[in-house]
């Protein structure tokens, strides 16, 4: 009987242990392994010749990496800003007792259910000058119309923004709409009695209450931006030239096609550090709040 009682006591931890073991090895063990590789001279295969910080020094001297980082900054900033602005506007509009809200909401949100490869394929041809928007405008008689961004080194990164915003903005709308619906009606009524106009009501009363939803949206969007890989592969393949290369595509090509595993591992480590700098404080505060 004694052993049975002990087993009952241990059982919960035993049940948890496979998942904990998987995560410990395949997440944290692998992070340590990759970080270690970034300090070695690994090329095609992992090797254990210690080179210290050399890969990081090389990485930041590579114009290819600097292009990828610059592209990410441009992409992430526009992606987040436009998604937030569109999401907020659509949520506020939808919150005005709109007839047909039940039809509109799923239409705004369905792109989120698609693979980035599908989104990329669709927008690749929609923005293709040969068959897409430009071609269609010409067929309609606007013969001077030009839209060649996807083939233009200076503008191609904006086509990635267009496709990514299409996919994610509905999701931001849904988050904001949930936030708006969660606001206490009493507060709004009180403000209305005080004679607040609709505009100042939004600015003074409603927007400040949406701050948690906004924070969540920024965190989720920025981590999506840093991880962006599929969309670029399907839409532009990183080109023309390196015009839409991002850190995720850089890591893949340096590690698996250029056989510079040490540098690839260093770039992955930088990506992880950036995500961790955003996610760890966020998750920490979320979990703490929940406890109370």
């Amino acid at each position: 009987m004694m052993t049975r009682a002990r087993l009952q006591e241990l059982l919960p931890k035993l049940v948890l242990s496979p998942s904990v073991a998987l995560v410990a090895v395949c997440v944290y063990g692998f992070i340590i392994f990759t970080f270690y590789l970034s300090l070695t001279d690994s090329r095609i295969l992992p090797s254990f010749g210690w080179v210290g910080m050399e890969n990081y020094v090389k990485l930041f001297k590579l114009s290819h990496w600097r292009t990828a980082v610059t592209n990410l900054v441009v992409f992430a900033f526009l992606y987040i800003a436009i998604c937030m602005a569109m999401g907020l506007m659509l949520a506020i509009f939808l919150d005005q007792r709109i007839r047909g809200e039940g039809v509109l909401r799923p239409i705004y949100l369905y792109p989120m259910a698609l693979s980035f490869i599908v989104t990329g394929t669709a927008w690749k041809w929609i923005m293709d000058p040969g068959i897409g928007i430009e071609h269609t405008m010409h067929a309609w008689g606007f013969v001077d119309f030009e839209f060649k961004w996807i083939k233009d080194r200076d503008y191609a990164i904006y086509t990635v923004v267009i496709a990514a915003v299409w996919q994610s903005s509905g999701f931001v709308m849904a988050m904001f709409l949930a936030g708006l619906r969660g606001i206490d009606g009493e507060i709004m009524r009180a403000a209305q009695i005080d004679g607040a106009s609709a505009f100042s009501m939004y600015r003074r009363v409603i927007l400040p209450q949406l701050r948690p939803a906004m924070l969540s949206a920024v965190v989720i969007l920025s981590h999506l931006a840093i991880k962006s890989y599929d969309l670029v592969i399907a839409l532009t393949g990183g080109g023309p030239g390196r015009a839409t290369e991002l850190p995720a595509t850089f890591m893949y090509s340096y590690t698996f096609t250029r056989n510079q595993m040490g540098i690839g591992a260093a770039s992955a480590t930088i990506m992880l550090a950036t995500v961790a700098a955003i996610m760890v404080p966020y998750l920490y505060s979320e979990l703490r709040e929940k406890k109370q």
Partner: peptide
């Protein structure tokens, strides 16, 4: 422990590709 499991959802998977 839960926090550590949760963080694993958000890592850029490039960090685990090689191992």
């Amino acid at each position: 422990l839960f926090g550590l499991m949760l963080f694993s959802c958000f890592i850029p998977f490039q960090i685990v590709l090689i191992p």
